[in-house]
Amino acid sequence: MSWGADTIRALGRRVISGIGRLGHAVLFLVRLMPGLGVALARGRLIIQQLYMTGVLTLVIVLVSGAFVGMILALQGYNTLVRYDAQSSLGLLVALSLVRELGPVLTALLFAGRAGSALTAEIGLMKATEQLDGMEMMAVDPLPRVVAPRFWAGWIAVPLLAMIFSAVGIIGAYIVAVGDLGLDGGVFWSQMQSGVSISNDIMGGLIKSVVFGFVVSWIAVFEGYDAKPTSEGVSRATTRTVVSSSLAILGLDFIMTAFMLRGL
């Protein structure tokens, strides 16, 4: 009996602390807002962070994108060929990548590669008193340190997602035409007749913009909120990856449901 009550109490505590954390994250975002404008006026800092986050994630995005495209082509072909519909392979691959896999996988990769690094960097700056030092030099770390990283993450994710989808489609084309013997013209024409710019490509772009915002937000918040110890930073890094992944998948479900219903 008491075991059941304890379990429920523990659950309640977790929910309450989860909501509390969300509240802290929102407050942090509100505090960050004025800094976002200030940082935008100093584009140099954003470019520097774009290099650290975007360019360094590019390699893993290129490789993953190519492999995902090639796997989709192989698997899709094996299924479609049963219905003699292999001419639709290009369409299948393009829709899967542009609508779903491109934005989602890119965001997950970004959270693991760059999001965790952002958290660790900000957390370590806190642990080594660099942020305190800035405050004492009358420099507000929010616009100077946090905002450029937030912007860079937000900008990088949609760009990376587009690159992922494009590379994936090229990878699928190479497998489909080079290995499976499909006709290249059919591959592209089926794709073009079925992929809509306003629905599918824009939808994917919107998703990746939302994911970029959320992942960057979580990463900088966890870093800024980390306990200034090595253990605190490592916990914060883990939390960034876990919460970002859950947020990406949950938001993806919600957005997909809305987009498919044409809202």
């Binding site: 080594t128 008193e129 660099q130 305190d132 030092g133 405050e135 004492m136 009358a138």
Partner: peptide
């Protein structure tokens, strides 16, 4: 912040930007 500009502080950990 204006006042802090006129104060310097040396942290134990140096707090240099890495």
């Amino acid at each position: 912040f204006a006042l802090r500009r006129r104060m310097g502080m040396l942290f134990q950990s140096s707090a240099l930007l890495t």
